[in-house]
Design a protein around this nucleic acid. Structure first.
Length: 95
DNA sequence: AGCCTTTGACCAGCG
DNA sequence: TCGCTGGTCAAAGGC
């Protein structure tokens, strides 16, 4: 699973037949954080169709970007999760 | 000892 | 009202 810089705790995993993909449910380890993360991927091509759906907003500061794509400070969004439900698509990334 | 991860079952909403 | 799907919680094992 891809590291986005935040800490998550997996609390479930189900196969969504509607889209024929695996969906993993993650939750922020912080109690003051109602942020959630859902990761979907193909059962046969996990690296070809990765999908990440962020739900909620983090109620704490930004953690040390562990896997920043361009270094610290350039994480895929600091705390803009307040937008509600961010939708990230590995093969369908807007902008 | 504490934390994390994984699987099954249960609950709620919709057709 | 029933069946199905999506989503969440709990318990056990390993490091």
């Amino acid at each position: 699973m891809p590291e986005d810089g935040y800490e998550w705790k997996k609390y479930g995993q189900k196969y969504i037949k509607n889209i024929q993909k695996i969906r993993s449910y993650f939750r922020c380890r912080h109690k003051l954080c109602g942020a959630k993360k859902k990761v979907e991927w193909h059962p046969s091509d996990p690296s070809s169709d990765l999908r990440i759906v962020y739900d909620g907003a983090h109620q704490h500061g930004s953690p040390p970007a562990a896997a920043s794509p361009a270094g610290p400070g350039a994480a895929a969004g600091s705390n803009r999760y307040e937008l509600g439900a961010q939708y990230f698509g590995g093969g369908a990334r807007p902008q």
